[in-house]
Simulated scan of single mutants.
Amino acid sequence: MTEEFRHNTDQSRFEAWVDDEFAGEVTYVLSDGIAEFDHTWVEPAHRSTGIAGRLVQYGFDTVRAAGEWRIRPVCPFVASWTKLHPEYQDLVVA
């Protein structure tokens, strides 16, 4: 099984792919340098595998590497994930 994460800027989302099949997404709305992570969704076949958390981490890591945005975790899953990962607090805005 191969897992790949992609930043689809045209669709304003971070994507998870497993064995070349779409597995999930974290969508965002970008305004004034703040990306509101507003929705996380994982295909039923890939739920309970931890892929959602790895996908959110990919999104945060991508934002950190670019150094251009901050993140507002609007999605309940992203907000919960953020509380469990204090090492990303520097990216978070209320």
Rank of each mutant, 00 (worst) to 15 (best):
residue 60 F to T: 05
residue 84 L to C: 02
residue 75 C to N: 11
residue 57 Q to T: 12
residue 46 H to K: 09
residue 88 Y to M: 04
residue 15 E to K: 04
residue 82 T to S: 15
residue 71 I to M: 10
residue 81 W to K: 08
residue 79 A to K: 13
residue 54 R to T: 08
residue 23 A to S: 09
residue 79 A to Q: 11
residue 30 L to T: 00
residue 32 D to T: 01
residue 12 S to G: 00
residue 49 T to H: 09
residue 52 A to Y: 07
residue 73 P to E: 05
residue 37 F to I: 00
residue 73 P to S: 08
residue 75 C to E: 11
residue 79 A to W: 13
residue 61 D to G: 09
residue 46 H to E: 15
residue 40 T to W: 10
residue 27 T to N: 09
residue 57 Q to S: 11
residue 25 E to Y: 10
residue 13 R to C: 08
residue 41 W to A: 13
residue 88 Y to P: 08
residue 55 L to V: 08
residue 71 I to E: 12
residue 44 P to C: 00
residue 51 I to F: 04
residue 50 G to E: 13
residue 67 G to A: 06
residue 68 E to P: 03
residue 76 P to N: 13
residue 66 A to Q: 14
residue 60 F to Y: 14
residue 23 A to K: 10
residue 87 E to P: 13
residue 33 G to D: 07
residue 47 R to D: 09
residue 78 V to A: 05
residue 30 L to C: 08
residue 48 S to D: 15
residue 23 A to V: 00
residue 16 A to R: 07
residue 55 L to D: 09
residue 13 R to M: 07
residue 45 A to K: 14
residue 84 L to E: 15
residue 43 E to C: 02
residue 25 E to F: 12
residue 52 A to S: 14
residue 46 H to R: 10
residue 85 H to A: 02
residue 12 S to A: 08
residue 56 V to R: 04
residue 15 E to F: 12
residue 25 E to A: 12
residue 22 F to I: 07
residue 16 A to H: 08
residue 83 K to F: 02
residue 78 V to N: 05
residue 14 F to Q: 04
residue 38 D to F: 01
residue 26 V to F: 06
residue 58 Y to P: 03
residue 41 W to F: 13
residue 71 I to Q: 06
residue 89 Q to N: 12
residue 30 L to A: 11
residue 53 G to Y: 05
residue 24 G to R: 06
residue 63 V to S: 01
residue 39 H to E: 12
residue 35 A to E: 05
residue 66 A to D: 14
residue 72 R to V: 01
residue 57 Q to R: 14
residue 68 E to H: 01
residue 23 A to P: 07
residue 75 C to K: 03
residue 73 P to G: 05
residue 83 K to H: 13
residue 85 H to L: 08
residue 47 R to F: 12
residue 20 D to T: 13
residue 89 Q to C: 00
residue 74 V to P: 02
residue 81 W to M: 03
residue 88 Y to R: 07
residue 29 V to A: 03
residue 24 G to Y: 09
residue 55 L to N: 04
residue 36 E to Y: 02
residue 68 E to T: 03
residue 80 S to V: 00
residue 74 V to F: 13
residue 65 A to S: 14
residue 54 R to L: 12
residue 84 L to W: 07
residue 48 S to Q: 13
residue 31 S to E: 01
residue 21 E to Q: 14
residue 52 A to G: 15
residue 76 P to M: 09
residue 71 I to Y: 04
residue 36 E to D: 14
residue 78 V to R: 08
residue 48 S to L: 11
